[in-house]
């Protein structure tokens, strides 16, 4: 049996969760204020995932960059391959929150979307 302490990242509470587990089976869990904590630990033990945010070059807007994020968490190990795709993308103003920049990025079932309204500069 293994034991480990997790810091839940789901909400700002940041619960410190003590877990004893074997493989991906949890025997005992303490410290989580809600059931999201259990889900988080289960996910961390089997397939840790994160959403990431970054920015993409944009032409014709007031600023040279437009902020973006993923719609769904992706496996942690794929973060830097996704960043490479984000680094290659280009946008042209106007763009709006929710516009899809890269659909199904790296085949991970998550989209890169715009998170800032940016109008075209006259």
């Amino acid at each position: 049996m293994n034991s480990r302490t997790f810091t839940c990242i789901i909400c700002p509470n940041g619960c410190e969760i003590q877990v004893s587990y074997e493989g991906d089976k949890i025997h005992e869990i303490n410290g989580n204020k809600c059931k999201k904590g259990l889900q988080y630990v289960e996910q961390e033990l089997t397939d840790p995932r994160r959403t990431i945010a970054s920015s993409v070059r944009i032409k014709g807007a007031e600023l040279p960059l437009c902020s973006v994020r993923l719609t769904k968490p992706i496996p942690k190990k794929d973060i830097f391959s996704v960043m490479e795709k984000i680094n290659q993308a280009d946008l042209t103003a106007p763009v709006h929150i929710g516009d899809v920049v890269i659909k199904n990025v790296c085949g991970l079932d998550s989209d890169v979307i715009v998170t800032k309204d940016m109008e075209r500069l006259q």
Binding site: C11, T51, A53, S54, S67, R69, I97, T115, K116
Partner: peptide, 25 residues
């Protein structure tokens, strides 16, 4: 918030997690 492009905003206020620009929008 315009420059806080990471997510994690809005969980208390909107019940969902947003980036800074989305939250302020």
């Amino acid at each position: 918030l315009r420059q806080c492009i990471h997510d994690g905003f809005g969980l208390t206020r909107f019940g969902e997690t947003l980036s800074g620009p989305e939250y302020s929008q």
